[in-house]
Simulated scan of single mutants.
Amino acid sequence: MQQSRSSQISLADTPYYHCVSRCVRQCYLCGIDQHSGKSFEHRRGWVERRLLELVSVYSIDICAYAVMSNHVHVVLHVDKKSAHTWSQEEVLTKWHRIHKGTLLTQRFLKGEPLSEAEIQAVTDTAEIYRGRLYDISWFMRNLNEFIARAANTEDECTGRFWEGRFKSQALLNESALLSCMAYVDLNPVRAKVATTPENARYTSIYSRIQAMKCNSNTSELLPFTGECKQHDSKLLPIGLTDYLELVDTMGRIIRDDKPGYINSNYAPILSRLGIKQIHWQTLTTSFEKLFSYAAGCEVTMRRFKQNTNRQRARGIKNAKLLSNAS
């Protein structure tokens, strides 16, 4: 039974969410279709460019993403506070970059004279748009509809391209966030699309590594601690080099020629989070299976269940994997 978005998203509990969109049946988003032999590799660029375009419009940041052959992973950070600092003109300008808006909002931005009733209508509409600009459902809708239309046009067909709804997981603490990010960034390695994170194209870790090589920041992605000189509360709770070491270590653990092997060269983040190696390996290889609508330690998951009026929180028995980091 499908759950309402209000039961899956609670900004009072966390601003971080893992979202997954999958293609219907055997449709290929990207990659090479084994049935027809047709290549859809160029569509990976569509998804990546659209994601980065939406980030420049929405008050939502991207922590991690991976564009796979028939699905897309993205870890999002909702910045509701920033959205409420935007002026009415900023809100309308941003919304008009991806939508037409209304006739009144168009006239307002052109500086045309409006009556008091019309100005009030514009104000009311702007507040609706403001709420949408930090809404994950609208973000994913603007991503998926754009890609679906482009793919259907290219395939010269109509009909549904994505599954009915995207899957959403709330990430309730730092260990849930970091393990999910590593899980997302390692998707191409697990699928044997790439041998190492640094050659896994169309992922956030690839983008970050390329930026690091050029001694620059990936401004479209939420920065790690230490990447920005100025104080910023919107920073991922780990240094970039530590995260890269973490992902690389986890990638070595899941190599085909070393099943179940735990590398003795621990990443620094493991000791700081207090997560046992076997737990971390389980998290970064089976994150989606372990947790459903939310992931975190038992306390945060129970609070999330209460705040979203759910009868139970699926996956709560696996919360012990994250409990040491809460």
Rank of each mutant, 00 (worst) to 15 (best):
A176C: 12
L178P: 01
A182T: 11
S168W: 04
F146K: 12
L143R: 00
V189Q: 01
D185C: 03
L186M: 10
D185R: 02
D155P: 01
C180I: 05
A151C: 15
L186E: 02
A148G: 10
L172I: 14
W162K: 00
L177R: 03
E154C: 09
G164I: 14
A150S: 08
E163N: 11
A148R: 07
W162G: 00
F161H: 04
F166Y: 11
F161M: 05
D185L: 02
N152M: 06
L178A: 05
S168Y: 01
S168C: 15
R149M: 08
M181L: 03
A176Q: 06
L177Y: 04
S175E: 08
M181G: 01
L178Y: 00
A182C: 13
E156C: 12
R149L: 04
L186T: 04
F161C: 03
L178R: 02
V189G: 02
D185S: 05
A176S: 13
A170K: 04
N142R: 13
S179F: 09
C157E: 13
N187A: 15
E145I: 12
N187M: 04
T158L: 14
L177G: 02
M181K: 01
L172V: 14
L177S: 03
R160G: 07
V184D: 01
N142Y: 12
L178M: 06
V189S: 03
N187K: 06
R165V: 06
R149V: 05
N152Y: 01
G164V: 15
A176I: 09
K167E: 10
A151R: 09
A170P: 02
N142M: 10
S179G: 07
F146W: 12
E145Y: 13
D185N: 11
R165N: 06
L178C: 05
N152S: 10
A150T: 05
R149S: 04
F161P: 00
S179Q: 05
A151V: 12
Y183T: 06
F166E: 01
D155M: 08
A150W: 03
F166N: 00
A170E: 06
A170Q: 03
R165M: 09
L172W: 10
K167T: 12
T158Y: 10
C180F: 04
L143F: 02
Q169P: 09
G159S: 10
V184I: 12
A176F: 07
A176T: 12
L178N: 00
E174G: 08
E156A: 13
L143T: 00
Y183V: 08
W162Q: 00
A170H: 06
G164E: 14
S168M: 11
N152A: 09
K167V: 10
R149A: 09
V189N: 04
N142H: 15
R160Y: 13
N173K: 08
A151Q: 07
E163S: 10
S168P: 08
E174T: 14
A182W: 02
T153W: 07
K167H: 15
N152R: 05
A148L: 10
F166D: 00
L172T: 08
W162R: 01
L171V: 06
G164D: 13
E154Y: 12
